[in-house]
C-alpha cells in the first residue's frame, strides 16, 4: 500500500525528480524533498494560507495538494522572488519598506498572493487588496501595514513595468 511513485516537479526553474508516497503533501515535498523551506506550513488544513505557492501562475495552498498531483507541473515558491539576497523583488522591497511583516511566518504566502493579485490587477483598490489576502492569516500586524505594503508594491511594479 505504501507504494511510492516518481514525480517530476519544476520549482523555481529547477526540476526535482523524487520518489514519494502518495500521501506526501506538496508543502512537505517543497520543504523536505526540494529543501526549499521558505514555504511555511501553519495549519496544514487550508485555513491559514502560509503555504501558498504559485502553481502554473495561480495561488494554491500547497498543504491541500499531494505531491503526486503536481507531477509535471510548474511551481513558484517565495525563493523565486529575489534573484540574490541583496536584490529583492519589488514586492519584497515594499514589504520591507512599509513594515509589512513582523514575525514573518505568513510573509511567504502574503508575497505570492500579492504577486498573483498584481499580475491580474496591477492597480488594486484597498478593498480588492483586503479581499485578495483574506485567506492569508497574520497574527502580528493587524494587516494595516501589509495593505500599505501591497499598495506600495503595486506602485513599484507598475513603475518597473514603465521603465
Amino acid at each position: 500500500m505504501s507504494n511510492t511513485s516518481e514525480v517530476r516537479i519544476q520549482i523555481n526553474g529547477e526540476v526535482f525528480e523524487r520518489h514519494v508516497e502518495p500521501r506526501k503533501l506538496l508543502s512537505d515535498f517543497i520543504r523536505e524533498d526540494a529543501a526549499l523551506t521558505g514555504t511555511h506550513v501553519g495549519c496544514e488544513h487550508g485555513a491559514c494560507g502560509a503555504c501558498t505557492v504559485l502553481l502554473d501562475g495561480e495561488p494554491v495552498r500547497s498543504c491541500l495538494m499531494f505531491a503526486a498531483q503536481a507531477d509535471g507541473m510548474v511551481l513558484e515558491t517565495v525563493e523565486s522572488l529575489a534573484s540574490t539576497p541583496a536584490n529583492l523583488h519589488p514586492i519584497q522591497e515594499a514589504f520591507w519598506e512599509k513594515h509589512g511583516l513582523q514575525c514573518g511566518f505568513c510573509t511567504p504566502g502574503m508575497l505570492l498572493t500579492t504577486k498573483a493579485l498584481l499580475e491580474k490587477n496591477p492597480d488594486p483598490s484597498e478593498d480588492e487588496i483586503r479581499q485578495a489576502i483574506a485567506g492569508n492569516i497574520c497574527r502580528c500586524t493587524g494587516y494595516v501595514f501589509i495593505v500599505d505594503a501591497i499598495k506600495d508594491a503595486a506602485a513599484r511594479c507598475s513603475s518597473e513595468g514603465d521603465r
Binding site: 505504501s2 508516497e21 502518495p22 500521501r23 506526501k24 498543504c63 499531494f66 503526486a68 498531483q69
Partner: peptide
Amino acid sequence: MKPARFEYLA
C-alpha cells in the same frame, strides 16, 4: 505525514 496511507489512482 499528516494523512493516513492510501493508494493513489489518477
